[in-house]
Design a protein around this nucleic acid. Structure first.
Length: 271
DNA sequence: GTACGGCCCTGTTAGC
DNA sequence: TGCTAACAGGGCCGTA
C-alpha cells in the first residue's frame, strides 16, 4: 500500500520521464474516481510534486491546473514505451498518451485510488489534502506541534496520525513502525512533550528507512519501473504479530484499533 | 466541530 | 475440489 516513501519513490522515477511531455490523449475507466484523467488532454507537464501520499502533476493550462493522483491501496503508475494491448488490461483505470509516443498508465486492482483535476493549489474538493499537516521533515512538524494537536483531541494518537492532519504521509505500516521505534503504545490518547519528541523521531526514522529501501512491498506495491521495494525486510513490528520483539523478546500482539490492524509490543510499548 | 461506523473494492486465504 | 466468508485498509460521508 503506497504511503509517503512509496509515492516519493514513484515521483522520483516518473519526473524525468514526464517533464515537458504534452498529454495528447487520455482515457479512463468509467468511474467518477478516475474520469478526471481526461481533463489533462492538451496540457504539458511542468513539474511533478508530492504532498503526503498524493502526487501532484503541475500542468500548463491557463489558468494553471493540477492532476492530483492518489494511489489508494493498490495503485500503480508506469510509463510504457512499447505498449501493444496495454489498454485491454483488466485493472487499467486511467491512461495518458504523451507527445513522445509513450503511454502513462494507472492500474488499480481494488479501485481505492482517485484522480482529481483542480485549479493549481485549490484543494477544496479534496478534504484530506486541503487539511493536510506538514511534511514529516518540515520544520513545522515539531514535538510541540504534535503534542498540542494530540491535546486538542480525545482520539487514539495512531488514528490522529492516519488522519494526515498532524503530519502528512503516514499510513498503517509506517505508523506501527514509528510507534515501535518510539516505544509508545499506539492506543494512547495523550503525549507528553518528551514522548511527542520520540514519536516525531520515530516517524522520521521509519519513513527514512522506507525511502532508503525503495518502499515496502507486502503484496501489491511496485514502483514505476515495476520493481518491488525491500523495506519489508527492515520492518520491526508491522506484520510480525506472534513473533518475538527484536528489542525485548516478548511476543508482538495484534488487535484492531479504530478499524485498522495494529501491531505492538506489550512489554516495551506499554499502555 | 468532533467522534465513529459504514462503505467502497477485489485478490487472497482459511475453513468447511 | 469447490464453494463461501473473512480479511486487508485510505479516504469519504452520514449520523449522533
Amino acid at each position: 500500500m503506497p504511503e509517503l516513501p512509496e509515492v516519493e519513490t514513484i515521483r522520483r522515477q516518473l519526473e524525468p520521464q514526464l517533464l515537458g511531455a504534452e498529454i495528447v490523449n487520455a482515457g479512463a475507466f468509467s468511474s467518477s474516481r478516475f474520469t478526471a484523467a481526461r481533463e489533462a488532454i492538451g496540457s504539458e507537464v511542468l513539474a511533478l510534486h508530492r504532498r503526503g501520499k498524493y502526487l501532484l502533476v503541475e500542468l500548463t493550462v491557463a489558468p494553471p491546473h493540477e492532476l492530483v493522483v492518489h494511489l489508494g491501496m493498490t495503485g500503480r503508475l508506469a510509463v510504457r514505451h512499447n505498449h501493444p494491448n496495454q489498454l485491454n488490461h483488466r485493472h487499467l483505470r486511467a491512461w495518458w498518451y504523451l507527445s513522445c509516443g509513450a503511454l502513462l498508465t494507472f492500474h488499480d486492482i481494488r479501485r481505492f485510488g482517485r484522480i482529481h483535476y483542480v485549479p493549481q493549489g485549490n484543494y477544496e474538493t479534496i478534504p484530506t489534502l486541503a487539511a493536510m499537516g506538514p511534511e514529516p521533515w518540515d520544520a513545522a512538524f515539531t514535538a510541540e506541534a504534535l503534542a498540542k494537536f494530540v491535546k486538542r483531541s480525545n482520539r487514539h494518537v495512531k488514528t490522529l496520525l492516519l488522519s494526515q492532519k498532524p503530519v502528512a504521509g503516514i499510513g498503517n505500516i509506517y505508523a506501527d513502525e514509528a510507534f515501535w521505534l518510539a516505544r509508545i503504545n499506539p492506543a494512547t490518547r495523550t503525549l507528553s512533550l518528551k514522548r511527542a519528541q520520540r514519536l516525531v523521531e520515530g516517524i522520521r526514522q521509519a519513513l527514512d528507512s522506507g525511502l532508503r529501501y525503495g518502499g515496502t512491498t507486502l503484496r501489491d506495491y511496485v514502483d514505476a519501473t515495476n520493481q518491488s521495494g525491500t523495506n519489508q525486510h527492515e520492518l520491526h513490528c508491522y506484520g510480525r504479530a506472534g513473533t518475538p520483539c527484536e528489542r525485548c523478546g516478548h511476543t508482538l500482539r495484534r488487535q484492531v484499533l479504530d478499524g485498522r490492524g495494529t501491531t505492538w509490543c506489550p512489554n516495551c510499548q506499554p499502555r
